[in-house]
């Protein structure tokens, strides 16, 4: 495997809140010391509860946010603290697919204008070439015939169709990396899968690397090569999807898997094991392992004192738990 597409080392993003004239600001430790790599043409799914820092991580990698600490490398180049004007090439190589198809398209732009804008910004092609690229992009997300959709306004499209347009817009600059932030969570069950398939096709056919943010482990299982589990701003486990699901090493991952039902009429006869409590505050996270207050196997004097580091316990399968082996 050659040089990784994206490589994060100790990436940290804290938000400052509530600072005032006489008050010291507090810090939300939304992403804390995360290291990972994403290869070209692979999908890494990032799974975690609401507020665990998934979106923040994705936005920081795309340099929509300024990292607090750590390093981001993109295709071998360090982009950690580049200024806006030096980021233009990254803006072309790395794209984002946001969660809400209803707000991720400008309602006043017809589809062709929405798709043309990135090309115009990067000065790519003349009118005719841009038009052709738009049609190709629409075709690649199965909005056929593309001419039919090119002149539609977002409000004339269903949620699934909009999300396809958003995917087409992300694809139009031929990016190498895409952060898809819950790309199907707002869509109907019946159309979800079709969007996920399109993303898979793009990944496989065009060799695009994906960071697929989701809170749905089942989706991650079917559409990603590797899965990373986030808990309270920390990456607690990461590994190939089968290995992570069949042999979860972190107690949080284990609990998460337990909590997810499959469609089965037997479910109703028993209660499902679930962790008590809630994820901790990111302003004042627990000492030691951030999971220890909810952990069923936490060991006093260890888990609440010492922060567990990410260790590779199986080939390519990392976990941050003192007791995992």
């Amino acid at each position: 495997m050659g040089e990784p597409l994206v490589s994060l080392t100790g990436l940290t993003k804290w938000f400052e809140i509530g600072g005032g004239m006489f008050r010291r600001p507090l810090h939300v430790r939304a992403v804390d010391d995360v290291s990972l790599v994403i290869q070209r043409g692979e999908t890494l799914a990032l799974v975690g509860e609401s507020g665990s820092g998934k979106t923040t991580l994705g936005r920081t990698i795309l340099r929509l946010l300024e990292p607090t600490d750590g390093e981001i490398q993109f295709a071998g180049k360090i982009v950690t603290h580049l200024k806006d004007k030096d980021l233009k090439w990254l803006r072309r190589k790395a794209q984002m697919i946001p969660q809400d198809p209803y707000s991720s398209l400008n309602p006043t732009y017809p589809v062709n204008k929405a798709l043309e804008e990135p090309l115009v910004i990067h000065g790519l092609g003349n009118r005719q070439e841009r038009w052709e690229r738009i049609l190709t992009a629409l075709d690649s997300v199965h909005l056929t015939p593309p001419e039919f959709f090119a002149h539609k306004y977002p409000h004339m499209l269903s949620g699934g169709q909009r999300q396809r347009v958003v995917v087409a817009r992300a694809m139009i600059l031929d990016p190498e990396f895409i952060v898809a932030d819950e790309p199907v969570s707002m869509l109907d069950a019946s159309v979800k899968v079709s969007i996920l398939r399109i993303l898979k096709e793009i990944q496989e056919n065009l060799g695009v690397g994906f960071l697929h943010i989701t809170h749905d482990l089942a989706t991650a299982h079917h559409f990603a090569e590797r899965i990373g589990i986030m808990y309270a701003g920390k990456l607690v486990e990461m590994g190939p999807h089968e290995s992570l699901l069949t042999e979860p090493l972190h107690p949080y991952t284990q609990a998460l898997i337990e909590a997810i039902p499959d469609p089965d009429p037997e479910n109703r006869f028993r209660e499902r094991p679930a962790l008590p409590g809630e994820p901790p505050s990111l302003v004042n996270p627990p000492a030691g392992c951030r999971f220890h207050p909810r952990c069923p196997i936490a060991r006093e004097g260890l888990c609440d004192v010492e922060e567990p580091l990410l260790r590779e316990l199986r080939p390519g399968h990392f976990v941050a738990c003192h007791l995992a082996e």
């Binding site: 936005r59 795309l62 929509l64 806006d84 233009k88 803006r91 072309r92 790395a94 794209q95 984002m96 946001p98 969660q99 809400d100 707000s103 991720s104 398209l105 400008n106 804008e117 990135p118 910004i121 990067h122 958003v166 817009r169 992300a170 600059l173």
Partner: peptide
Amino acid sequence: KQEQYVESATSYGASKIR
């Protein structure tokens, strides 16, 4: 500003003034 298309525009390279 909260709408995601604004952030998307930043992510594909649109300047603030644009």
